[in-house]
Amino acid sequence: MKTTPWFKTLLLTFGFAAALASAAPLKIGFAQTGAESAWRAANSESMKVEAAKRGIDLKFSDGQGKQENQIRALRSFIAQKVDAIVLAPLVETGWDPVLRDAKRAGIPVIITDRSIQTADESLYACFIGSDFFAEGRMAAEWLAKKTGGKGRIVELQGTPGSAPANDRRKAFAEGIAKYPGLQVIDSQSGDFRRTGGKEVMEAFLKKHGKIIDILYAHNDDMALGAIQAIEEAGLKPGTDIVIVSIDAVREGVQAVADGKINCTVECNPLFGPKVYDTVAAVLAGKTVERKSYNKDELFDATNSAAALPKRQY
């Protein structure tokens, strides 16, 4: 390969910068949305624990569910001259001015969890998120294999309009479209809540009676609520009604091990390792994938008991 002198200098400079960075602790600012759910708490925890493990000086800011708090946090990170900024944006738009400031200060920004809309794609280095769409597809594929492509499904949706609910619903519908025997006979929102899941499932059971073969829930909380409703109706969850769910929180995996949920697809909140690996790569000047997703696994009767002791959330 032909290397020109200027390219060598560039490499040297980057090497030098990397050496400097490894000498002084890396300073990273992380603007979190808030602490609205157990998933979010696990997400923050992972970022903090992994930073401590790697000796990174993490400036953590809790946005308390407000974009203006997050913007203020970003400005303060820029003023503190952090090495990189990680942002979990609360909403999709309105980030351009502050991201431009970060770019001018030469600080790379990594977007996690939810995506943003911007006119200038160069304003952030890359996006690392959860692939809600893949989760829904995995659930559909597992179900098709398990049931041989036959069964009447009731669906418990998440909060209407939210990205995870939209994507998990669409992906699942596309996934089962190949199997005419699999039919969604009813779909209502349980608002991602345990109470909601129980209440809606009670209504489904009264309305459709014994013809329900399968329950697809957009998260474990709703599935766990629905299990109670199924038990109270005198049926056996996991046997009389096959249950497929998403999230794989510890309690959900426990329910899989107990045979009450048949399968739960993980939505991994432990972003820490991947995010810091990416930050290191960006700072070292390597090209990173524009859009990458945290790896999600699937838990069913075959692997849930073994996975249980390792669940961190």
Binding site: R194, K198, D221, Q228
Partner: peptide
């Protein structure tokens, strides 16, 4: 009643 109903205390969402 809310906690007994779902056999769990969900501080994030209960009573929302």
């Amino acid at each position: 009643l809310a906690a007994a109903n779902i056999r769990a205390a969900d501080a994030y969402r209960a009573g929302e």
